[in-house]
Design a protein around this nucleic acid. Structure first.
Length: 270
DNA sequence: CGTATTCCCTGCACGC
DNA sequence: TGCGTGCAGGGAATAC
């Protein structure tokens, strides 16, 4: 399940193969993923040169003179650079065929991913209301603190709301809250400025660490498998219900918060 | 406006 | 061995 570190790793993996290349043609093996694939992907994108590849939240943007293709991996998507002639496998939904003889190919079994189009000079509606990038300078504890005043929702749900900060998915929300010693069910508005400073730091630390780890597998973008950005044995709470806390040995608890499974240590997190 | 719930989809773990 | 069931998850849409 790609979270921000995986998407960032994917960006770094594909950029050298895609930037400066012309997309010669687009092969769509179905007309929709999460949403219908817009006409411009078929009509406008072919023939365009990709100037840069950037990331916004969990979207990858392939920028061209005419506009940008927006690629989202959903929860099961992965992108690989393949030979354009390579036979597609099950769930290979589209190819962006490059003038290098390679193709950028999406595989996405659950089809929660998307392929959208943003006209040059415009911002796609789905990107309009997004909060700050967690690794940017505009994101810090004061931002979270100010945004959370008067909010009764659990801090974990608050963190996963893309309007407050983007890219903090289910795994990293649990992990960052553990690292900051904050109980995930606590109302967002009841947490002090000082504790939000710690939380913001931990969010950045956890994400940066995962990106570092993902970076070690960048070469695999030309190989069959994707690149995980984290390793199970390095998780402190996620997926460890009933197992001993790695810090204090108290059994890790779990509960559904905001329709998402959440893990925490009742002793380390208050 | 903020919060809670529903929905999309498939692979996999699990129980019989 | 095979089948049915339930669950997971990003996040927009919908309901309240």
């Amino acid at each position: 399940m790609p979270e921000l570190p995986e998407v960032e790793t994917t960006k770094r993996g594909i950029a050298p193969h895609v930037e400066g290349r012309v997309i010669e043609r687009v092969i769509l093996r179905r007309n929709d993923l999460r949403w219908p694939i817009p006409r411009a992907i078929r009509n406008t994108l072919p023939g365009q040169r990709v100037d840069t590849v950037t990331r916004r939240a969990k979207y990858l943007l392939l920028h061209t003179q005419a506009g940008a293709a927006l690629l989202h991996l959903g929860m099961s998507g992965s992108l690989r650079i393949v030979d354009a002639t390579a036979k597609p496998r099950t769930h290979d939904h589209y190819d962006l065929v490059l003038d290098s003889g390679k193709a950028l190919r999406l595989n996405d079994p659950r089809r929660f991913g998307s392929l959208l189009w943003q006209e040059a000079g415009e911002t796609h509606p789905l990107l309009r209301d997004l909060g700050p990038e967690p690794l940017s300078t505009e994101f810090d504890g004061d931002w979270l603190w100010a945004r959370s005043r008067g909010r009764s929702a659990p801090v974990k749900s608050f963190l996963m709301d893309q309007r407050n900060v983007v890219g903090v998915g289910n795994i990293y929300a649990s992990e960052a809250l553990f690292a900051a010693g904050i109980q995930p069910k606590r109302a967002a508005g009841s947490i002090s400025r000082v504790r939000y400073a710690k939380l913001a730091d931990e969010i950045q630390r956890v994400l940066l660490y995962a990106i570092t780890r993902g970076g070690t597998t960048l070469r695999d973008f030309l190989a069959p498998d994707g690149a995980p950005g984290y390793f199970e044995q390095e998780l402190f709470v996620y997926g460890r219900a009933g197992e001993p806390c790695k810090v204090c040995a108290t059994p890790i608890r779990s509960a559904v918060i905001g329709q998402r499974m959440t893990y925490w240590c009742a002793r380390c997190q208050r």
